[in-house]
Amino acid sequence: MTDFAIHTAPFSVLVTNHSNKLTTALAELYPATLITRPNPQLIYDFCLQVQRKWAGWGRPFHVSSGDQHFRMTDSAQLVPVFEWGVNWCVASYQHQFLAIHAAVLERDGKALIMPAPPGSGKSTLCAVLMQEGWRLLSDEMCLVDLTSGAIVPYVRPVSLKNQSLMLLQSWYPQAQIRQITSGTTKGTVGYMLPSTQSWAGMQQTATAAWVIFPQYNAAQQQLTLSKLSQADAFMHLANNSFNYAVLAEQGFNSLSRLTQQIDAYRLEYACIEQALSGLNKLC
């Protein structure tokens, strides 16, 4: 047993762990200061169990939170399943923030929010922007403080998949991409480490300024950047939120305030240079 706690602000997660491999792998992905031994005096936001179960034929590790089953996995895929398990805990159980499925980056105190479904190129664009000097707040989860309306960082390694992994490696050979795992339910998955400034600013909030809905389209001749009405942006953001419905009136008020602050666009692009150029002009 190598239990540990992982403190990626704003959440601390207690992990009951039966895998030495997981401990070693996470040490490659997170700064050493963020992974500690469990402290019985602390109250943790979530508890995640990674337990070896002999009944799991071929996939002996059971990832769960309390009585809630998440997934069975083999040792080779433990890292991505663990990372998805943490996302699942946050999406399912935290409601002190409005949580939107989106990448978030910051420049000059202003946040760029990119909500999008899988396959839209969101994580690729997010990784590229971070390599170009934007501060990463999250590649997966936009957390909105219900009281202040500030965008709260949730800095973790950027999850890259399949072709995106090869592209990022070729564009930015100095980028640190670790724990590449093939054969997962999402194909090959690897993790790009956040930049030094992103880790350093992991408790520094930002003000929402732009919402971009990216869509990669190989057939696109040139970049298309179309402005959305704020009401349309509101509806798209609500549809991309994990807990808008749970928060009800509080969610409506919080999202209304955020929407009032932003300019929203739909971005269709065929190559990353187009997208970068468009975003640099806009933001």
Binding site: S229, F234, A245, E249, Q260
Partner: peptide, 20 residues
């Protein structure tokens, strides 16, 4: 509840059935 934005577009939220 109604939220009207700077561009004059607006959304409605029913506290009765929680629909937007």
């Amino acid at each position: 509840l109604q939220a009207t934005f700077n561009d004059a577009s607006s959304v409605l939220f029913s506290t009765f059935d929680h629909e937007t």
